[in-house]
Each structure stands twice: as structure tokens, then as C-alpha cells.
Amino acid sequence: MTADLHTLTGAYALDALSPEEAREFARHLTECDVCTHEVAELRETAARLALAVAEVPPAALRARVMAAIPEVRQLPPPGRVADVVPLRGRAWRQRLPYLALAACLVGAAVAGGVAVNAEHDVDRQRTQAEQQASDLASLMAAPDAAYHTTAVHGGGNATVVSSVSQARTAFVYRDLPKLAGSHVYELWYSRKGSMVPAGLVDSGRPSGTAVLAGAASGADGVGLTVEPHGGSKQPTTSPLMLVSIAG
């Protein structure tokens, strides 16, 4: 490795070389482990610059991308046998039936409504909304944020974003059907099979985001049920969705 070539790691990581120079440097990388490692680190650094300028994509973009991908043929892995499915991924999927069963059993128990003072509620909700926006921003920025997208039984879909370091979880929902009467969507943390209330989903909008109430520590899953007005202390219906968030 010549000193001169090595100084190109920065320009290469930022795509700031001419095509000829980039090709030459890429050849050099195949025989320079030090440079390869440095380029990887500098690319990682550049990605942080990208995260810092994140914008809000228009809703239509998601729809266009999701509509396009079924038509796009995927590339095979580059000349090697495909990696084995991670065992951990399999393990958490297998736990889901157990979670579902637990939620149904608990559901038979209590159907307690919570009395609320409507006026007080409005103020509280506004404060909560502001708090949520800032909670969500730090959650999404966490390096260990994990994303699970799933269909919601009955319509719509959802992404559960969880982070161990932040001890928080967000529920990002799309196209949830409007519920009959005064019923509400309620969120739950699952801890070793018992369901802990984690807040109600704003019923006014089919799509949005909710940060789950309460601490996520020890929780192994997130569930969603339909409950009577005001929510319940334990689920009274079978879950429309259960997502494992176990690390």
C-alpha cells in the first residue's frame, strides 16, 4: 500500500473519486486489508451524516415502492451457498402461539372500564402527544432499534419499533379499520404470558404512531386488542396482532 493511495480512503467512502480512480482504488482494496477496514469505518461514519438529514417521505412513496417490489426479481447471493436462517429468528416465531393462547385465557377474566374525566383528558392527551413525539424521535435514533412489521387481523398493518437501550416501544399503524360504537384499540405488553396494559391507540385516525405506556423492560411481546370504551385492565378479546420483541 502506498501512502498516496491510502489517503484516498476518505474520498472513496464519500464517492468523491472519478470513475477511473474509483475503479483503481477498488482494485487496491482487494489487496489492502487496512484500507478496506478504514473504508468500512468511514462509510459507517458517512451513513451517520445521512441519518442526521432524514426527512419525512410522502405517504404515496411507500405505496409506490410496495406496489413495485412484487414485480422486481431478486438477485441470488453472490456465488456462495445461502446463509442459514438465523436460529434466533425461528425461536421467536415459535413462541408466538404461546403468547396468543395466554392472551386469550387472560381475556376471559376482567372487562373493567376506566372512568375518565373528559375535559381533563383533552389536556392530558395534548401533553402526551408532545411527549410522545420526542420519545419517538429518540427511540427511532437508537442504534439497537428493531423493527417488526405485521398484518393486523381485521385490516391494516403495523410496525412495532423497540429498543432495549431506550426501554421503549412504539406502535406504528397503517389503515386500521374504524371500530363500531365506542370500542377502542388497546395495546399490551406481554411479560411471560401475562398481559400488561400499554395504552390506547388514538381512535380518530386510521394511521399514526403510538408510544407504548409503561416501561418495556422484561416485556417479550406487544399485542393489540379491541376493548370497550376507555380500555380494559386485561384483554377481553383475542389479539388482532402479537409481535415478539424479545432480544
Binding site: R48, L49, L51, A52, V53, A54, V56, P57, P58, A59, A60, L61, R62, Q132, A133, S134, L136, A137, S138, M140, A141, T159, V172, R174, R205, S207, G208, T209
Partner: peptide, 23 residues
Amino acid sequence: DHSPAFDEVSEQVERRLEREQVR
């Protein structure tokens, strides 16, 4: 100018902490 219909999903994905640290 942005198009008006923001994606509700990502509306909150303002990486404020990231922004502050990078700045």
C-alpha cells in the same frame, strides 16, 4: 416544497438526537 400528504408513519422519524450529535 414538500408535497402535502406526509406519511403518517414516518412523520415522527425526526432523528433529533442524531442531528444534534452530528452537528
